[in-house]
Structures are given as C-alpha cells and as structure tokens.
Computed example of a mutant assay.
Amino acid sequence: MTDDKMTIDTSAELMENDALPQTREVHTDPNAKPVTQGQLPRALAEPATKKSPAQWAYERIILYIQNFEKQLDNDHEVGMGLTGSDTGVIRIEGLGYYDPDIITYYGTNQSGAKTQLIQHVSQLNVSLVASPKHIDQPEPKRIGFQLATALDRSEDVTS
C-alpha cells in the first residue's frame, strides 16, 4: 500500500515479476557500484523463464565482467583465475554459450598459449582477476563492453 491506495497485481503481473531477474549486493565500500546499477541491457529485461540456463548465465556473466572492468585502471584487463588445474589465469578474449547448458571462455594464458574453458552451468565458478595488459599494447582491451553492446541489440546475442 502506498499513499493510502491499495494496488492489486494481476496473476500475469505476478508471474512476470517472479520470472524477471532480481539481485542484491552489499559491499563494505559505500562507493562500490552494484553490477545492476543503471539501465540493464535489453536482453536482461526479458524473463529468465524464456531462456536456457546457458543463455541466462552468459548474459549475467557479461554484466559482472563489464562491472569489474569499470574498476580497472589503464594498465589492467580482465582475466579469469582457474582452480583445480595448473592453467593459472586466462586473459578473457571471448565468451559464448551453447544451449542448453554450456558456457565457454576464450583467451590466452600467461605464457601466451590459446586457451578455452568449457563449463557446464551447474559447475559455474568464475574468479575475475585484474591482469596486466601487454606492454606493447597502448590501451587495455575491454571485452565486457563489447559483449554488453551485443546484449542491447535486438538480434541474437551470439551474433
């Protein structure tokens, strides 16, 4: 109830609100920007029930990568730390999904070898790491911003 007026949601509105994404973040730093601050890309305004688990995970990972990159200086790029192997950190150069349940990360490791991680959404575990950019590279690559642009397009985000 607001302003002494009672509002009643229709059953369709209740179901839609249940399917729309919800998030909550708490930080010790009062200036920390939550991943969902500001306007969400068009793709994330669609109900999650209309998406495969892979597409839904892919879209949210993009937001986290983009938000992480906003906090980096010009000497660092986003990398991904891996556990359970000796691969170490991968510089993220691409991200994709394969319906209904596979997420894949493309990149290079610290020694420059091409690397791809293929992960089932039930095993999703990503550690974003600030990685130094290449010394001969004038500007850091910002993959999160490129990926987020695709989420705002009306066509399929994988194109």
Rank of each mutant, 00 (worst) to 15 (best):
M1D: 01
K5T: 03
K5N: 01
I8G: 00
M15V: 09
M15C: 02
E16I: 10
E16L: 14
D18V: 06
Q22N: 04
T23A: 14
E25F: 14
V26A: 08
N31W: 08
Q39Y: 13
T49G: 06
T49W: 13
S52W: 11
S52K: 04
W56L: 10
I61V: 14
I61E: 01
I62M: 02
L63T: 05
L63G: 02
Y64P: 00
I65D: 01
H76K: 11
E77I: 07
G79D: 02
G79Q: 03
G79T: 06
T87I: 15
I92W: 02
I92L: 09
I92P: 00
E93K: 15
L95H: 03
Y98S: 05
D99V: 11
D101E: 10
G107D: 02
T108Q: 06
Q110M: 12
G112F: 15
T115V: 10
T115Q: 08
T115D: 01
Q116H: 05
S122Y: 10
V126N: 06
P132V: 09
K133H: 05
Q137A: 09
P138L: 13
P140T: 07
G144A: 12
Q146V: 14
L147I: 09
S154T: 11
E155P: 00
E155S: 12
D156C: 06
V157L: 03
